[in-house]
Amino acid sequence: MSDASSSARLVAVDGIPARDRRAPAPDDARQRRNRLTQAVKSWFGGRDDENMVPEANQPEPSTFQRVGAFLQQNLLEPTPPHYELVYGYILQTDRRLVDAVDRAIMREGLLTAEAAELILSEVRTDVSAEFLANLVDKAQAGLSEIAGLAKQSGADAQAYGQALESKVADLQGGAGEETVKALVQLTSSMIARTKQAEQQLRDAGKQMTQLRGSLAEARRIAESDALTGLANRRAFENKLRRAVLQARETGKPLALAFCDIDHFKVINDTHGHDVGDRILKFVAQRLASASGNNCFVARHGGEEFVMLFEGSNAEAAARIVNDVRADLQDRRLVAKQSGEAIGQVSFSAGVASLGPKDNGRQMLRTADQALYRAKREGRNRVVVLGE
């Protein structure tokens, strides 16, 4: 499916400020790159002669040298955050980090500083969200156990109180008057204490119910993207696993769309990150509103979004995605406050269906391949693979 042309519409994006950025002069940029290259070479043991032939039996470069070479090749400054990112990429400590870096390099030809910063912030967010989610799971398991104990304790206390009340009636028979009074007083005291314990258990139960609500809210936050309000990548991966299992059980089709905003770096560089953030939210709203109840929409990371269509094949899903794409390309966005023109915003998408032997990861990989084909064919289009 290719892009469709129609008359443009002006759309104001609330609160987008105008922002001017001057591109560095070519000579300044070239001198900066040369200084950066020399610094990285000196810090990481590089040689000035790039045409030197490697010696025979030369030892493999160390991880430190590999990090330095990667920084040099991508013109990244040797800062601690960049070193952290590249170190994780080379050692493949996080599959999602590796995939994100590979996609950024494929998209831009190298890993830019902006992309590196975004990837690192997302990885750190994912780790925090995963830690919080695990904490939520453990807390909920503990609460269930405590609730069971409290319920049992309440039942035991009630039974004990009933037994004591029965004994009080028996003691009012033939024993001595003083003894009977003492036993009755003791028994009445125990009954009162038991009732107090029951009240405390009821109060504790109410507190646990409130805590469950707080934990549910914490789980929602852990699985939400703070900027767009959509589900995040962790929530999508959980949803995808469940959807694949259900599709296998029911025999119903399942389709997935991988969407990426075209030239998003240009938008950020030209108008600033505040405008970029508002564009992300605007596109997220368009995808979510047009997808319907049978589609799960999530922000996968950066300017990438994923859409999971349960009960639909790839062709049906592609028609929905293409309708959103066509609607978006017809709009000409402007900053409402300043009137500054942002112009056309478009996205490319790849769509795939769940194959007979596919799992969720393979399905996502096929959609990703379709997305890059859409990029190579000129962007602002939807490509279907797997059918």
Rank of each mutant, 00 (worst) to 15 (best):
Arg33Gln: 14
Lys195Arg: 15
Ser346Leu: 11
Tyr372Ile: 00
Ala316Val: 14
Leu171Val: 15
Ala204Asn: 06
Val321Thr: 09
Asn322Arg: 08
Ala288Asp: 15
Leu183Ser: 07
Ala163Tyr: 07
Gln58Cys: 02
Arg233His: 15
Ala157Tyr: 03
Ala204Phe: 08
Asp156Thr: 04
Leu110Ile: 15
Asp330Phe: 02
Leu287Asp: 09
Ile105Glu: 04
Phe305Ser: 07
Glu108Cys: 09
Asp27His: 15
Ile90Gly: 05
Ala157Met: 09
Gly276His: 08
Leu132Glu: 15
Gln72Cys: 08
Phe258Gly: 00
Gly302Gln: 09
Gln162Trp: 03
Asn74Thr: 03
Leu230Trp: 09
Ala182Phe: 06
Ala335Ser: 08
Lys41Asn: 12
Val123Arg: 05
Gly339Phe: 02
Asp330Ile: 01
Gln199Pro: 01
Ile221Lys: 11
Ala169His: 11
Ala25Cys: 14
Asp49Gln: 15
Thr93Trp: 04
Gly311Gln: 01
Gln58Phe: 01
Ala25Met: 14
Met363Gly: 06
Gly173Tyr: 14
Pro253Trp: 09
Phe264Gln: 07
Ala169Trp: 05
Pro253Thr: 07
Leu111Ile: 01
Arg325Asp: 06
Glu130Cys: 14
Gln38Trp: 09
Gly148Leu: 14
Ala247Ser: 07
Gln73Cys: 01
Ser153Thr: 13
Asp126Thr: 07
Gly301Tyr: 03
Arg9His: 15
Arg379Cys: 10
Leu364Gln: 13
His263Glu: 14
Pro54Tyr: 09
Tyr89Ser: 12
Gly45Thr: 02
Asp274Ser: 07
Leu36Val: 09
Val334Cys: 11
Leu143Glu: 14
Glu303Ile: 04
Met190Arg: 02
Leu245Tyr: 00
His300Asp: 03
Glu178Pro: 02
Arg32Trp: 13
Glu165Phe: 08
Ser348Gln: 01
Ala18Gly: 12
Gln65Tyr: 00
Glu304His: 03
Thr179Ser: 15
Ala197Ile: 04
Cys259Ile: 03
Ala231Gln: 13
Ala192Val: 03
Val275Ala: 14
Gln172Trp: 05
Arg30Asp: 14
Ala23Val: 10
Asp262Trp: 00
Val384Asn: 10
Ala116Asp: 04
